[in-house]
């Protein structure tokens, strides 16, 4: 039972951890992506995230399934937030659990890299001077 979610709700890292952790786990690797106050030297006030929800969920489920097949015994949970986020708020949380730390860390790292490459989520940065800009898009 893999947990994959996308929506405006505040993400609870403890809930993701609990969803992957079992008595056999010796490690849970937790990645938290948070909104930073600067980008490329420009002061950022907040970020608005939007997504192609159906595809984003499908792609996240596929990434998790691919990695769970590749890294034997790992259990992965992913949640991405959308909507208007302030500085320091979590935009994405990944929890990867395994009997041992190396596969847990690898799985969490691979999940965020694949998510950033494939999952259709976009961010619009809001700057101090009142302007806004889509990042890359």
């Amino acid at each position: 039972m893999t947990f994959v979610a996308l929506g405006p709700a505040v993400i609870d890292p403890a809930a993701l951890t609990a969803s992957v952790q079992t008595a056999e786990c010796g490690a849970v690797s937790l990645f938290i992506g948070v909104v930073r106050n600067r980008n490329g030297g420009r002061p950022v006030m907040g970020i608005e995230y939007t997504a192609y929800e159906a595809m984003a969920l499908a792609q996240m489920r596929r990434i998790v399934s691919e990695l769970e097949n590749e890294v034997s015994g790992v259990r992965i949970a992913v949640q991405h937030r959308i909507g208007q986020l302030g500085i320091g708020e979590a935009s994405v949380v990944i929890a990867a659990a395994h009997a041992h730390r190396a596969p847990a860390i690898t799985a969490a790292s691979r999940t965020i890299e694949e998510l950033k490459r494939r999952v259709p989520v976009w961010k619009c940065e809001h700057y101090e001077d009142g302007t806004r800009e889509w990042v890359h898009a």
Partner: peptide, 10 residues
């Protein structure tokens, strides 16, 4: 069908 500009999740 959907147009997917460069993604920027995370």
């Amino acid at each position: 069908v959907a147009i997917i500009p460069p993604v920027a999740g995370g």
